[in-house]
């Protein structure tokens, strides 16, 4: 009942009974092995209510991120993006909807084509989704770079000429280029240096407010989730074991596994 109400009031992303099974077959003779990477999970993300997804590696959080972006094909379940089920639409339809849901990657160096300049990288989403007229492309690229705090002069550079933090800014600029409502952040700072992590998190917080963004924030770092998200879901072995307000889940956990995670913090 309560879920219905939320949907009426306009969830951004609503996931229902989503599952992803991988079938592993090592060789001809071995038995098929089914891995339930994501097993029947449901959650809703409301506007301005960023959700953190925590768990160990292998708990299915990255798979979930890839599923809601349709970078992986779900085995079953619904993924409602603004009330439209994107779980079973084709590649072409999804391509157009990608404008509204974007992703920020963990590995800053491998998520950008190493042989494209920053300028080319940023123009790509603008051209694909026809965000601005062609003659304003350069202006828009400068504006995006400014928003993520990169000097406009950096746009002639290639990713490997930039530092990890700068690359992450390019990735973020690329993600916000299409004016998405929701951005999936897949461990956005875990590959960055301690001294730079803060810059990126500050930037994400700033953009969240300025652009009215909602994040699905995947991290193994509980502190970061505490900071970024209003809501937290804990995943364990493909299932969401606990979901609720961050203040509840991360300070007063109900589930045994969540407690274990909190205890393990250094």
């Amino acid at each position: 009942m309560s879920e219905k109400v939320i949907e009426m009031t306009g969830t951004i992303l609503s996931v229902k009974n989503l599952s992803k099974h991988f079938i592993i077959k090592n060789n001809v003779f071995s038995q098929k092995k089914i891995i339930n990477a994501v097993n029947d999970i449901s959650f809703d993300i409301l506007p301005n209510e960023s959700m953190g997804l925590i768990g160990e590696s292998g708990s299915g959080k990255s798979t979930t991120a890839n599923l809601v972006l349709r970078l992986l094909e779900p085995t079953r379940g619904e993924i409602m993006l603004f009330g439209k089920n994107i779980a079973d639409i084709n590649y072409k339809e999804m391509r157009i909807l990608r404008k509204d849901i974007q992703i920020i990657f963990q590995h800053t160096f491998s998520a950008l084509d190493p042989k494209m300049t920053v300028d080319e990288l940023l123009k790509e989403p603008l051209i694909i989704h026809n965000i601005v007229p062609v003659q304003e492309l350069d202006k828009e690229v400068d504006r995006l770079l400014n928003m993520v705090g990169l000097p406009a002069g950096e746009k002639i550079k290639f990713p490997q000429q930039l530092s990890g933090g700068q690359n992450q800014r390019v990735i973020i600029a690329r993600a916000i280029a299409t004016r998405p409502k929701i951005i999936v952040c897949d461990e956005p700072v875990s590959s960055l240096d301690v001294s730079v992590q803060g810059q990126i998190l500050n930037l994400l917080i700033k953009l969240k407010e300025e652009l009215n963004l909602t994040y699905l924030f995947i991290s193994h770092d509980l502190k970061v989730v505490r900071l970024m998200c209003e809501k937290t879901a804990v995943m364990h072995e493909g299932k969401i074991v606990e979901i609720g307000k961050s203040s509840e889940v991360l300070f007063n956990p109900k589930h045994e596994y969540t407690r274990k995670l909190l205890d393990a913090e250094l």
Partner: peptide, 15 residues
């Protein structure tokens, strides 16, 4: 398999 290809897919580029 490299993630920049996934990134290109994610911004909605044609195959």
């Amino acid at each position: 398999k490299q993630s920049f290809i996934t990134a290109e897919t994610a911004i909605g580029k044609r195959k």
